[in-house]
Design a protein around this nucleic acid. Structure first.
Lengths: 140, 140
DNA sequence: CCGTATCCATTCCGATACTG
DNA sequence: CAGTATCGGAATGGATACGG
């Protein structure tokens, strides 16, 4: 059983009365780093540094706007860095940072989990949808 | 370096021409299981089976509506199960399933990652916000 | 007690147009 | 090439009221 109260060793005595609980800030970080687009951007940048339009091509369903927002957010959180290659015309490369690199194993585990258990999930969905049919009563 | 093209051994020859790439379905599953509320619900249910109002109390910021939606989604994906204890007045208990239990290590890793690297993230944010101050030009 | 239904505010997101 | 600005529709989420 997991407890979800993480033991964090503090060098300052008296600062933490008990074990450190997860705060809203931790949740926020997880949300920002593991959301839909961020995950795909990080995957791509783990493979190789990429230009803006390379990323757009690698993630066909993302829009300019969302990609820009995602890149800024990841940059702000220190996961990626924005490197200006040349400026006429401007060329920008995005790279994963060493901090962002600590995510690699985690993302890898996430992706493997999803593929490993997808069949079971689909069975569960089929059963659920079968037991709970969509409500419509016009001709029942 | 990670490749993000997962090797899935198939018993049916010819079905997969190459390695299996992540599909939109995989992303959707990850989004549904690792989103904001789902994560907290799964944490709580990993600790112990809980009633509806217990969960509301354990996650103070969630509303009825969002909690219900999250529980239904997790149930549909086979991560949790809904057990009716008694029916006058109705009492319901939510429990993690064995499929949902496969998430425990993953969630644990996620939470540990967030606490381990939070200081570095905060430094990165401070630097970013410092270099990119909020734009206002009325009195510049 | 455990929800569903409804209304409403806010936020998100895609499409489009425009700039250095 | 790599964005920013703006707009409108869609989805989300909270508050409230009601039901089995």
């Amino acid at each position: 059983m997991c407890t979800w109260y993480l033991q964090v060793t503090s060098t300052k005595p008296g600062v933490m009365t008990e074990t450190t609980q997860l705060t809203a800030a931790h949740r926020e970080l997880i949300d920002q780093v593991f959301d839909k687009w961020s995950l795909q951007v990080l995957e791509a940048l783990c493979e190789k540094p990429s230009r803006f339009n390379e990323l757009r091509h690698a993630i066909p369903t993302v829009t300019q706007k969302s990609l820009t927002a995602t890149l800024r957010r990841l940059e702000r959180n220190g996961m990626i860095e924005r490197v200006i290659i040349s400026s006429r015309p401007i060329a920008v490369e995005y790279r994963i940072t060493s901090l962002g690199g600590t995510l690699e194993d985690l993302i890898d585990a996430l992706l493997h989990w999803s593929t490993a258990h997808m069949p079971a999930v689909q069975r569960a969905r089929a059963r659920f949808d079968d037991e709970t049919p969509p409500p419509h009563d016009a001709s029942s």
